[in-house]
């Protein structure tokens, strides 16, 4: 008897061969996501915009026309396209464009870093709570609910107020505010996956909880969590700007979009368009992040 002979009527002819796609067509989940994104030109456009914004912040020293902190009493509150100051100058005569480019560093850091940390921390707690269920779930999720009970802005102001200003404290504040919602999303996703038969099949094979979490739960929970996290980036930028605006964020003269908006507020009647420029930066960035996360959600919503 040959080793490779297939027995049983179910296995006789293999007409499956006919419908099998060539190997190159077999893509993994992430391959499928990319295939969908590739043709979603709107999302790709905004993704490119985000890359551009991030790059311009990172390379601000190279591309900024002026020193962002160099004041000039002579050229205060100049309009758009005033000589080399394309976006005008602020109340101390500093170049707005340069300050927006440098300010992007702070604002993007505020937008991205807290979300990354909150995704890891909240995701971890959420996955544990969702998989363990029972008392562990109750303790973790009720703990998160304490933070959930307050509107996020109020919570941020309260934490920031008690910690004091400064960049590190602002990062901590934002992380604390963003963790509970991410935890909730991770918990929901995990408890859904937990009830799937393939998790039971893994348990029935004698696998340890850690192995099941890594091989079966995390891989499935990660896409809803990532999609949600990407929506939080713009929320975090806005929240950070708000805190800076209220004087609870970074301290002057560090350029920051929220802080710029706050200080330029007094000159609103003198140079309204120039004063709105940091706001425009915030607007464009958060819209870009929101639309990209929207496209990401659609692309990740691949069946199976």
């Amino acid at each position: 008897m040959s080793d490779l002979s297939i027995t049983g009527a179910g296995a006789t002819a293999d007409p499956n061969a006919r419908e099998a796609p060539p190997a190159s067509q077999v893509r993994g989940y992430w391959g499928n996501v990319w295939q969908r994104l590739r043709y979603d030109y709107a999302t790709l456009f905004f993704l490119a915009l985000i890359i551009l914004i991030v790059a311009s912040a990172v390379f601000a020293p190279l591309i900024a026309p002026f020193d962002p902190n160099k004041a000039s009493m002579a050229h205060r509150l100049k309009p758009l396209f005033f000589r080399d100051n394309i976006l005008g100058t602020d109340e101390q005569g500093r170049d707005i464009l340069s300050r927006i480019l440098y300010g992007g560093r702070t604002s993007l850091l505020m937008g991205i870093a807290p979300v990354v940390v909150a995704t890891i921390v909240g995701g971890l707690f959420g996955v544990v709570a969702g998989y363990a269920g029972g008392k562990v779930n109750t303790i973790i999720m009720r703990g998160m609910d304490v933070f959930f009970a307050f509107p996020s802005v109020l919570l941020a102001v309260a934490i920031s107020g008690s910690l004091g200003g400064g960049m590190i404290n602002q990062l901590i504040t934002l992380t604390v505010v963003l963790t509970p919602p991410l935890c909730r999303v991770a918990e929901t996703a995990t408890s859904q996956i937990r009830s799937m038969d393939f998790v039971d099949a893994a348990r029935a094979s004698g696998a340890s909880t850690t192995s099941i979490l890594f091989n079966h739960v995390l891989v499935n929970a990660i896409s809803p969590v990532l999609v949600y996290a990407s929506t939080l980036v713009s929320a975090s930028i806005l929240l950070a700007s708000g805190l800076s605006f209220l004087g609870l964020g970074v301290s002057p003269p560090t350029p920051d979009w929220g802080l710029m908006l706050s200080t330029l507020r007094q000159a609103l009647y003198v140079q309204p368009i120039v004063c709105a420029m940091p706001g425009v930066a915030i607007l464009i960035t958060s819209i870009a992040f929101n639309l990209v996360s929207d496209g990401l959600r659609q692309a990740m919503d691949v069946k199976a």
């Binding site: 993994g28 989940y29 038969d197 393939f198 099949a201 029935a204 091989n215 079966h216 891989v219």
Partner: peptide, 16 residues
């Protein structure tokens, strides 16, 4: 061992 009812949940969608 156990064979589950065929449904969308019996195999991990992210694993070959």
């Amino acid at each position: 061992q156990m064979v589950f009812q065929d449904s969308y949940s019996s195999l991990n969608p992210r694993l070959p």
